[in-house]
């Protein structure tokens, strides 16, 4: 926010506290970053592990049966990551809802001129809500399930493979949600013109506007959301995040 005209103009306004989706972003996303860091540690360990059975120990001349193939560490790490992905989407959806609501945002209803004739971002928030809800179902832990297999010899299993696979759906969903938030936020900032946001945020908007023009009158946002989500997937916004979040660089 450093250097933002918009922020400067609100320093003395009558709204003394923002809703949690804005005010508590550092706490929630900070917790998510901690999750990422822990999960990376688990995966790095597992990637370098021997995971078959029995294992051959040449030095001691032994072949020992064990359970290194049990993927509980991966299952739990995937479940933990699912929580973070779901929460990032949940928080983002709440901010989209905040942006389209004139009572909370102070902006035109649904972020469009001539509201009524234009429905603006009304349905984009619905899409975000549908995806955020889907991710909450996907966040149900896979690792707490176990069905005995192999005539009960393998009587506890990890379900890690599904735990990992469902993350792809969740990541697709959260990229779409964040894409909608980016579009909504850029649209909101446009309404403050000629006041500008910070240099960091204006840079993001400039990049965004190259692939999605300002929403002037009703049009389908579907392909815009896809284009923006693709740039999120490609990591295009990491450079901006790294410039303001030093901890991401380490």
């Amino acid at each position: 926010m450093l250097g933002s005209d918009i922020r400067q103009s609100h320093l003395e306004c009558d709204r003394v506290q923002d809703p949690y989706s804005i005010r508590c972003q550092p706490q929630v996303v900070g917790a998510c970053l901690d999750v990422l860091s822990h999960v990376c540690w688990v995966l790095r360990t597992e990637a370098n592990a021997v995971t078959d059975n029995p294992l051959v120990f040449v030095e001691s001349g032994a072949v020992l049966s064990g359970g290194n193939f049990h993927a509980e560490p991966v299952a739990m790490a995937a479940d933990y990551l699912a929580l973070a992905i779901a929460e990032i989407g949940a928080l983002s959806e709440r901010r989209i809802a905040l942006l389209i609501d004139p009572h909370l945002s102070g902006l035109p209803p649904f972020l469009v001129a001539e509201g009524g004739l234009n429905s603006g971002f009304m349905m984009a928030q619905v899409t975000a809500a549908a995806l955020a809800s889907e991710n909450k179902s996907h966040a149900h832990p896979a690792s707490v399930d176990s069905i005995p297999t192999s005539a009960n010899q393998e009587d506890h299993v990890s379900m890690a493979t599904f735990a990992a696979r469902r993350l792809h759906t969740m990541l697709d969903n959260v990229a779409d949600i964040v894409a909608i938030e980016l579009l909504a936020a850029a649209q909101g900032i446009d309404f403050h013109h000629p006041q500008k946001s910070s240099a960091a945020i204006e840079n993001v908007i400039t990049a965004l506007r190259k692939i999605s023009p300002r929403y002037v009158e009703d049009r389908s946002l579907s392909s815009d959301i896809r284009r923006v989500a693709a740039t999120i997937d490609d990591g295009n916004y990491c450079q901006y995040a790294e410039s303001i979040l030093p901890s991401l660089r380490t």
Partner: peptide, 24 residues
């Protein structure tokens, strides 16, 4: 055969390709 079939590689491969930025 057993050495090829035992292993957590598939769950790991399904989990690893997170997109965007992530520390190594």
């Amino acid at each position: 055969g057993l050495a090829l079939l035992n292993g957590t590689c598939v769950a790991m491969a399904g989990r690893l390709p997170s997109r965007g930025c992530c520390a190594n």
